[in-house]
């Protein structure tokens, strides 16, 4: 049998290296470094720059007022922000927004997931996809869409709910809630999807084992479903909290950034940085937001790690 004899080239090659492939480490560098460098240039470097700016006095648009170059003024920006009585109203408004929207999303999303997960029919996949549509859309355009939908004169929102001509957009007493409604509308499916993923990851045999062990419906839900889905619910909570905290485009689409807009931190940050051009002040405010986000996330992640154990 010819193939079982080694061919000539093979024999000359025995033990000798005539072709040296790229070493793994070179390949690894080639694969990883471009991304890392890009991230450092576009994400990390600006971050340090803005940290520097936050301790200075600088305006990007009006060099004639504050001087052409940043002038170091220490923590003055931070103390001004934290002593501003207005800022606390903004914090509370933002917190209210986060709690209402994320809370609503968690409850509705998990409930919806239970409904969908328990049902079994052909159009299930389609229904899930249709429900997911809102979250794949551009928030600002969705905002625009709802602005039309909410319109007190011609929009259908009031009409369909039989509410009369209520102004949902330009009334400062109400427009925070109108944004909350849209946020819930957009992101409930996200919580739902994660919950479904969690529910489907629970092996069926656990329920069968529980059935054999004579567990009641309630015990199964309490001892199997909830603890098994809990880590994913927490993940959903982390994501939604961060996103809701820095919400910017949705309110821009619905209400805009004007005087009647709800006093959300991200909108405020935009106004001071790019409308009144207090760049350094804006940087400080941005940093405060970043610290809050990191703090909340790490608390959640601690719980998550515990839950995963």
């Amino acid at each position: 049998m010819s193939i079982f004899k080694r061919s000539k080239e093979n024999r000359t090659r025995n033990g000798q290296v005539y072709y040296r492939p790229m070493r793994d480490i070179t390949l690894l560098r080639l694969f990883i470094f471009p991304t890392i460098i890009l991230l450092i240039v576009i994400n990390v470097f600006p971050l340090f720059w803005s940290l520097f700016l936050s301790f200075s006095r600088y305006s990007a648009k009006m060099p004639n007022i504050w001087g052409k170059n940043p002038r170091m003024i220490g923590t003055a920006n931070y103390s001004r922000i934290l002593t501003d009585p207005d800022i606390w109203i903004r914090f509370i408004t933002t917190a209210k927004y986060v709690v209402l929207s994320v809370g609503g999303e968690m409850i509705l999303g998990f409930g919806l997931a239970l409904l969908i997960f328990r049902s079994n029919f052909k159009g299930k996949g389609l229904i899930t996809t249709l429900l997911v549509l809102p979250m794949t859309m551009s928030p600002v355009i969705v905002g625009l869409m709802w602005q039309l939908f909410y319109d007190p004169n011609w929009g259908s929102f009031n009409y369909l709910l039989g509410l009369g001509r209520i102004d949902w957009v330009s009334d400062p007493a109400r427009n925070l809630y109108s944004i909350v409604i849209v946020d819930i509308w957009m992101w409930t499916p996200f919580v739902m999807l994660l919950s479904i993923a969690g529910l489907s990851a629970i092996p069926r045999y656990l329920y069968e084992a529980a059935e054999i062990d004579r567990a009641s419906w309630w015990l199964k839900f309490w001892k199997i479903t909830l603890p098994m889905v809990y880590p994913l619910l927490l993940v959903a909570l982390i994501f939604r909290t961060i996103e809701a905290f820095k919400i910017f485009d949705l309110p821009m689409g619905i209400v805009g950034r004007g005087a009647v807009a709800p006093r959300l931190l991200a909108l405020h940050l935009y106004n001071v940085s790019f409308v009144t051009w207090k760049t350094s002040y804006g940087s400080a405010l941005g940093y405060i937001m970043l610290i809050i986000i990191i703090a909340t996330t790490s608390i959640f992640i601690k719980y998550l790690k515990k839950a995963k154990q």
């Binding site: 576009i42 820095k246 937001m289 986000i293």
Partner: peptide
Amino acid sequence: TRMLPPVVVVIPVFL
């Protein structure tokens, strides 16, 4: 880097 709020990073990126 993904968790950074765009509004925070946008100032230095803008500059």
